[in-house]
Structures are given as structure tokens and as C-alpha cells.
């Protein structure tokens, strides 16, 4: 599309205004969390870490941080191993079976979160998983699974199928071929999948709201209650902690994929 210089400038200005709108929430939360009063406002005179200190000194927020971190780690391990093998199987099987498998594996991402949460809630109560650590881990693994399948499948799509056939032809079993030949080649996809699975679990609120109350009290869950009850800057400090984790995660994925791209193909 060729446009005049002036038209292009208008498009650029418009696009950057939209992008500023997208970045706005990220920009306000940090200064509010650093303000030195007990109100939700921008810092008036000095910056202060008192709201972060409050977080560190509050045993409730501590426990929630631990809950969230351990749940996200466990859910990442499960989603990542189950999802990676699923993507490998789909890649190798092809045809109708692969298509059906893919649709099943993607449902937790596509269907409305509330509906899934409601369905799981009933089952979790029946299975005594309600408001337990394994219960939340299992639910988060299911929610995160599609993201792993997607990222690993994307890496596999760029892989030469003959690589696997070569390994098989010299006598490797499918398991050995997968572990020794395929996995190292889709490492990038698996790492991205793991990071995304971690972020999904770390930020998850809808399903968590239905399948837990107070015995397992994740960071987003406690923040949700904080926002609904009374808004104080501690919640903004938690939001900063949540967002920092995401930015670190996305940065890892981006640096990793850049390194891969700039490295000469051998």
C-alpha cells in the first residue's frame, strides 16, 4: 500500500496513540505502588517502598506468594510434559486422529473460562479436590495445556520430518527418537510453552475463584478480594509483582527466540 507521506504520518500518529493506550495501565501501577501515602494516588513528594515492605511483612501475602509460586511451578511441569508429548504425537500421527486430538487439547483455551470453571467446580467437589493444592495444580495444568501444545506445534512445523525417520531407521524407538532427537530440536518451543504455562497459572483467577476458597489462597485470588473490599496501594504493589513476573517471562522468550534467529544455521 503506497500512501503519501502525510497519510503515513497520520497512520503512525494514530497507531502510537493506540499503543500508548495499551501501555497506560502498565505505566500507572508502578508509581502508585511507590507512593508514600495510604491512598491510591501518584507519589506526591517522595517515592517509598512502604507498600512493598507491607507485602513482605504480611504473613498472608507471604503464604499467597508461596501458594502461587508452587502451584505455577507444578502446573508448568505437568502441562509442559503432557503438552509436549501431545504435540509430538499430533505432528507424527497426522490426519483425522491428529485433528481430533488437537481440537480436544485446545478446548480449555477456546471455551469460555467461566463455563469450564463451573464444570470443574462440580467435579472437584465430588473428587475431594476442592480447595486443595493438588486440585488447583490440576485445574491450572488443564488451562495451561493448550498454550504448550500451540508453541511446541509451531516449532515442530519448522522441523524436517526426515530427522525423526532417520533416527527410527537406525533403530531408535519412538520414545528414544522423541527424547534424543526431537526434543533438543524443539527446545525453543518447549521453553516458550513452559514460560507461557507458568504465566497462565501465575495470573489465573477465574477457575481459581470457583475451585478454591481460603485453604489455597493464590496471589490473584487474594488480590481479587482486596480490590472488591477496599482498594489500598498494597494491591498495586501486588499487581507490580504479578506484572514483573510476566515481563521477565516474555523477555526470556523474546531473547531466546532472537538468539536462535541470529545464530547461523548449522
Amino acid at each position: 500500500m503506497e500512501l503519501s507521506r502525510r497519510a503515513l504520518r497520520i497512520v503512525a500518529i494514530g497507531a502510537w496513540i493506540v499503543v500508548l493506550f495499551l501501555l497506560l495501565p502498565g505505566f500507572v501501577t508502578l508509581p502508585v505502588a511507590l507512593n508514600d501515602s495510604r491512598f491510591m494516588q501518584l507519589p506526591q513528594e517522595t517515592l517509598s517502598l512502604r507498600h512493598f515492605e507491607a507485602l513482605l511483612n504480611d504473613s498472608g501475602w507471604h503464604q499467597s506468594f508461596l501458594d502461587s509460586a508452587t502451584i505455577a511451578l507444578a502446573a508448568t511441569v505437568i502441562a509442559c510434559s503432557v503438552g509436549t508429548f501431545c504435540a509430538l504425537g499430533v505432528w507424527r500421527l497426522g490426519g483425522r486422529v491428529a485433528a481430533v486430538t488437537l481440537v480436544i487439547a485446545m478446548t480449555p483455551m477456546i471455551l469460555p473460562p467461566v463455563v469450564g470453571a463451573l464444570a470443574m467446580y462440580r467435579l472437584w467437589v465430588q473428587l475431594d479436590l476442592y480447595d486443595t493444592w493438588p486440585g488447583v495444580v490440576l485445574a491450572h495444568s488443564i488451562v495451561a495445556l493448550p498454550y504448550v501444545v500451540t508453541t511446541v506445534s509451531t516449532s515442530l512445523a519448522m522441523l524436517d520430518p526426515r530427522l525423526e525417520q532417520a533416527a527410527r531407521s537406525v533403530g531408535a524407538t519412538p520414545w528414544r527418537a522423541a527424547l534424543d532427537v526431537l526434543l533438543p530440536n524443539v527446545r525453543g518451543g518447549v521453553i516458550s510453552g513452559a514460560v507461557f504455562a507458568f504465566i497462565i497459572s501465575w495470573d489465573e483467577i477465574v477457575v481459581t475463584l470457583f475451585i478454591s476458597t481460603r485453604a489455597v489462597y493464590t496471589l490473584p485470588r487474594r488480590m481479587w478480594d482486596g480490590i472488591r473490599e477496599n482498594v489500598d496501594p498494597t494491591v498495586a504493589a501486588v499487581a507490580v509483582v504479578l506484572m514483573a513476573m510476566t515481563v521477565i517471562g516474555v523477555a526470556i522468550v523474546m531473547i531466546h527466540s532472537r538468539l536462535r534467529r541470529t545464530r547461523p544455521k548449522s
Binding site: 495501565p25 490473584p220 488480590m223 494491591v235 504479578l242
Partner: peptide, 11 residues
């Protein structure tokens, strides 16, 4: 990728 909850709070 930022937390939906954190964004809602910011708004």
C-alpha cells in the same frame, strides 16, 4: 500478557 487482574486494577 500482563495479568488481567492487574490491568483491571490499573483502569
Amino acid at each position: 500478557w500482563l495479568s488481567v487482574l492487574a490491568r483491571a486494577l490499573a483502569w
